[in-house]
Each structure stands twice: as C-alpha cells, then as structure tokens.
C-alpha cells in the first residue's frame, strides 16, 4: 500500500511538473505582464529599462490581429498606406521564385495561393519599426524631433517635427510614413503610452500565438532574454549597422 502511495505521490509530482511545463507560455505571459507592471507601482523610470521585441516567424499565422490592434490603439489612419506594423506573406517556389505580398498590411487576409504544387515553403513575417540602437532616422532629423528614449524606443515629437520626410527616406525598413492629417512623420512607438503604465504593446497583447515577445533586452531573466537565448536570432539588414532591436527567430534569408 505504502509503495502504491509513494507511486501516487510520485505520479502527482510528475503531473504537476508536466502541467508546469505545458503551462510555460501561460506562466511566461504572467511573468511578462507582472514584470512590466512591477514598474508601474512607482514612478516610471526609463533608466531601468531597455526595450526590444522578439518575433518568432514560425509562430506567426498571418491573422493580422496585431495590425488591427495597432491601428485602433494608435489612431493610425485606416487607408492601406499607413502602417506601424504589417504582415508580409512569403511564398518560396521550387524554381527559386519568391513572391511577397502584404495586401492592406495583411488586414484583409491574404488571397489563396495559386499553383500549390510548386511551393517550397510559405511563411508570414510581422514587420514593424526595429527601434534601432543606431537609428539612421534619428541621425538625419534636422531638428531633433525624432529621438531615442533612454529605454530604447525611437519616437517622434509631433509638436516639433517640421515634416521634411528625411527620416522616412533614411529608414531602411519602410517603417515610417507621413501622417496624412498631422503632417508629421509617424511610426511604431512600442505603444509607449502603454509601456509607462506597465502594459505591453497592443500588437504583443493580442497576438494569439505569442509570435511577438516584448521585453527587456539587457536583463537576464526576462521573456525576451529567454527567447534570444533559446533561438537562433537574426536582425533585418544587419549590413547597414543600424543595430535593430527587433529580433527574429526562424527568419528566412529571403526576408529583407
């Protein structure tokens, strides 16, 4: 009996361990929110943070909830030429052809793929401002209206931007646009208004597959740090030395 009891206890122990392992993402999510919220208890101190974002290409299902959430959260114009974040669909054919599409940033879904037989691989790639550590957009702004915050976010001061569009030209990632009503350069802010309240960016919050992992770049025990430790990480256009802080896992070499 006692042996049986021991077995049951061991079994229960294993069960708990298995539950913990399976619930990892859930727990990670809790940690993520809790970690961010911890900062909200007192005054927000930007010097205590340095933000980046991890993107797991293999997890993105192209639902573009992130795009919709971003547009709603940040008052991004609904026309299909203005995006803080968007989804690209890549179709790699067996003959080496690569087709990339992003109809309305992915908001309206993607058209059916034609010629199924010839497909080598397909995948979705979420894109957004890379919040570069060496941002060319900040370098070129003639009046300093676009700037890097201490916590590693590249922002635009709407009340100061003269609208010369040099930063849009300087961004290698197409992440900036001219706001049609405000007539200033506009872009992803990592939902800075949410960050200071201890919340994660809207796109991260709504992603159903946790393809986006937001957090601290330099701290060790954080979701982003774990993401970067356990994945092979690549950044976009590394040859330009912009030192992007959008870290991609499972990124194909065709993505630019």
């Amino acid at each position: 009996m006692s042996d049986q009891g021991m077995d049951r206890r061991a079994f229960m122990g294993d069960l708990v361990a298995a539950c913990l392992a399976a619930g990892g993402p859930v727990l990670l999510g809790m940690v993520r929110v809790a970690e961010a919220q911890g900062t909200a208890s007192g005054e927000y101190d930007p010097t205590e943070h340095y933000y980046g974002i991890g993107i797991d290409v293999a997890k993105c299902i192209g639902c573009a909830r992130c795009v919709a959430a971003c547009k709603a959260e940040n008052d991004v114009p609904m026309e299909p030429y203005y995006f803080n974040t968007w989804i690209e669909r890549y179709i790699l054919r067996t003959d080496g052809e690569v087709e990339v599409t992003s109809p309305n940033g992915g908001l309206d879904g993607f058209p059916p793929i034609e010629g199924e037989g010839q497909i080598l691989r397909t995948f979705f790639v979420p894109k957004l401002c890379n919040h570069c550590a060496n941002p060319p957009c900040v370098q070129v702004c003639p009046v300093g209206a676009t700037f890097s915050t201490r916590d590693g976010v590249v922002l635009v001061d709407e009340s100061y931007c003269i609208g010369c569009r040099y930063c849009i030209q300087a961004c290698p990632y197409g992440a900036r646009y001219m706001h049609p009503e405000k007539h200033v350069a506009s872009k992803c802010t990592f939902c800075y208004h949410r960050l200071v309240k201890g919340l994660v960016p809207a796109c991260v919050e709504v992603c159903p597959t946790s393809a986006r992992v937001f957090g601290e770049v330099e701290k060790r025990a954080t979701p982003l740090a774990r993401f970067m430790r356990f994945n092979d990480i690549q950044v976009l256009k590394p040859n330009l030395n912009t030192r992007p802080k959008a870290y991609y896992a499972n990124l194909d070499g065709e993505v630019r």
């Binding site: 900040v138 370098q139 070129v140 702004c141 003639p142 009046v143 300093g144 100061y160 931007c161 003269i162 609208g163 010369c164 569009r165 040099y166 001219m178 405000k182 007539h183 200033v184």
Partner: peptide
Amino acid sequence: HLGHPERSFEIFMTPNKRSAMAMF
C-alpha cells in the same frame, strides 16, 4: 514641401548637429 513650414525656423534654432540636412 514641408509638412509644417511654420516650424522651419527650428533648423536654425535647434539644429541636430548629427543631421546632414540641419546644416542647410
């Protein structure tokens, strides 16, 4: 061409010294 021509004077007042355009 500027989105906010009324702010163009800021190029003289607070030029970003790292910007090529600020020297204009």
